[in-house]
Design a protein around this nucleic acid. Structure first.
Lengths: 170, 170
DNA sequence: CCTAGATCGTCAGTATACTGTCAATCAACA
DNA sequence: TGTTGATTGACAGTATACTGACGATCTAGG
């Protein structure tokens, strides 16, 4: 394509935009996840929250939002729904009356074990149309890009390591 | 990685999942878009709808949803907001009382011209952390994947070509 | 002790997304 | 022509997302 003095407005201004592709791919990913996991009545977000609570028992909501990079406000209702389904429970923290500690219930631990094969099928299906080498290449580039753009997101990811010094000190 | 008899539940079950990376990247993309375009009070979805209406004057809502692959229900409120901002207008179709034809207003055409540089800055910023060759590689793979997964999404993309025979025949 | 600033969970408001449903309308066919 | 089936826009209900604000609470400094 020759360089153009001013951009002509075509529908390709949408189709070729990275942001549009990211949106489409996210919607496809959610669609596949829900299809594979429809027996479990669990959304991708709820699944991620359960995993994070499983690996960080007693975490509070704000730190949970940093660990999985989800919005703090949104997470409130996610937690509510998980609690309503009896997959998690909230206990007041004795040393800080503001926070509530999150724990998996027996039900929560059980459904997590059961849903994982379905989630893995879903994740595999998302990339299935690509050749194995291309899958690796795409995931590698995407991991890099997400990591390098971390601070550009509203809720930057703060991995476990970054939380060690915050609340677990005792 | 050696093959494991059963999957240990770690936080990497979230971080390494393609679906999680797609979600994060989408959120980062929206965040960058809104930052670059904050002077225009236009969301990514509203921008895409305006472009599509510009390139398909007189399109109806259902076909618009196919052209940009957005959910038909969601699009209803998007159109309402664009109309409230006086960027588009809806006219009843004389030959079919069910549908309403969508057109850009002068305001809509104007803001589209004005916002495009900001959108292009946003799109460039999303990929900026990668080397130019990697940007091309990532976009190429993602285009392939979205295209090959088209039917897996709730609202498959039906490009302009596929619409020619539907409503434009006169 | 007391106050200034930070943090926590929560809430209101807005904007996607998707499911399922509905009345109005149209198209096709007997 | 009359009925069946499909389509259109609209709506209700649920679930992310984000902004901005709030009271309750904690922490630091004086």
């Amino acid at each position: 394509m020759p360089s153009k003095p001013s951009t002509p407005i075509t529908i390709d201004a949408v189709y070729d935009a990275p942001g549009y592709l990211f949106r489409r791919m996210q919607q496809i990913a959610v669609s596949i996840f829900m299809e594979e996991c429809k027996a479990f009545d669990l959304t991708p977000v709820q699944y991620a929250a359960l995993i994070a609570i499983h690996t960080h028992p007693g975490i509070d909501a704000t730190r949970l939002s940093a660990v999985i990079a989800f919005d703090r406000s949104t997470l409130g209702s996610v937690i509510e729904r998980l609690q309503a389904k009896d997959y998690i429970e909230r206990k007041p923290a004795p040393e800080d009356k503001r926070i509530k500690l999150l724990y998996l219930t027996k039900s929560g631990a059980a459904i997590l074990r059961e849903i994982i094969p379905a989630v893995e099928r879903a994740q595999a299906r998302m990339l299935e149309p690509l050749k194995p080498a291309d899958r690796k290449a795409l995931m590698g580039l995407l991991e890099q890009l997400v990591d390098l753009n971390n601070e550009a997101s509203r809720v930057p990811l703060r991995a476990e390591d970054a939380l060690e010094h915050l609340g677990k000190g005792g």
